[in-house]
């Protein structure tokens, strides 16, 4: 019986990949490699290129990581070592519970609450700092690349904090005492000994967050502005691979449109798998570094 369950599980996994590739095959066959490099997405002329969405996914993820990594690491350090014990427990549980908040609620909040702030405060301030040029040019409409990145950062924080806190707490106390006994201050101990010791695990937490940001669908679809072209500014509306699928799938009636969307899903699947495998290997190897270092 258990064997049967395992077979069903593997069939599910392989079936998922096979089904997607099968559904997307006509698009890949028709467009070839140009599908990955093409910048046009136009059902009227039957030209489909995934590059704007690949770039949009990478850009929103990059923005999210720039915000989430420093804040997440600082929070994880606080929760692992710096705050009073009781506060650590309360805030740690709060952060873990917040990981359960559904994506669609982040989207709702982002669209109806944060987007107006983004238009009236965040974007004008950033525009002012960068002289309304380059990445900070163009109309400030609230929704777009920047807002998607900000909301993604908020969404990946619980994951990043929870995992990095755990790997930070797994640093052997001998290491911490060793540094303290040399006259290191608490900050020096944390930055030069604890964080470097936990670096593989932290990298794993970051990678896992990247995987999550890649695939995040609903919230991004609600706030990024759904424009199938390369963004030229932080304030531009754009689209990610996941958001374009969510927004256009049910309306895809032109030739090759649906197959092309599924082809994007195949690319997204590959990217997510690569990132997740890397993340799992990193987080898992934490245990081993402890052994080999001893």
């Amino acid at each position: 019986m258990l064997g049967a369950a395992v077979v069903i599980f593997l069939a599910l996994l392989l079936g998922l990949a096979a089904d997607l590739v099968y559904q997307a095959a006509p698009a890949f066959a028709h467009f070839g490699f140009a599908f990955v490099t093409g910048t046009q997405w136009n059902p009227v002329t039957t030209s489909y290129g995934a590059l704007p969405f690949i770039v949009g996914t990478l850009e929103t993820t990059a923005i999210a990581m720039m915000i989430a990594i420093p804040i997440g690491l600082g929070t994880a350090l606080s929760l692992a070592y710096l705050l009073p014990k009781r506060l650590r427990l309360v805030l740690g549980t709060a952060v873990e519970l917040l990981a359960a908040v559904p994506s669609v609620i982040y989207g709702l909040w982002g669209l109806l609450v944060v987007a107006p702030w983004s238009r009236t405060i965040i974007e004008p301030v950033i525009g002012f700092i960068f002289g309304h040029s380059g990445p900070a040019s163009g109309p400030e409409i609230g929704i777009g690349l920047l807002l998607a990145g900000i909301i993604l950062a908020v969404m990946v924080l619980p994951t990043m904090v929870a995992i990095s806190r755990d790997v930070l707490m797994a640093v052997p106390s001998e290491q911490i005492e060793g540094a303290l006994a040399l006259g290191a201050t608490r900050w020096q101990t944390l930055w030069r000994v604890v964080v470097p010791h936990a670096r593989t695990g932290i990298l794993g937490a970051v990678t896992l967050s990247i995987g999550r940001a890649f695939g995040e669908t609903m919230a991004v679809a609600m706030i990024i502005g759904n424009t199938p072209s390369l963004a030229h500014s932080l304030f531009s509306p754009a689209a990610t691979m996941a958001s374009i699928i969510a927004n256009q799938f049910t309306e895809a009636v032109e030739p090759f449109e649906l197959q092309s969307l599924i082809a994007i899903a195949v690319l997204l699947l590959v990217m997510s798998l690569l990132v997740n495998v890397a993340a799992r290997l990193l987080v898992r190897s934490v245990g081993r570094t402890h052994v080999s270092a001893a």
């Binding site: 052997p172 001998e174 290491q175 005492e177 060793g178 030069r192 000994v193 010791h197 570094t289």
Partner: peptide, 9 residues
């Protein structure tokens, strides 16, 4: 300390 604890990083 009891167990050698060089900083592995």
């Amino acid at each position: 300390f009891q167990r050698p604890n060089p900083f592995p990083a």
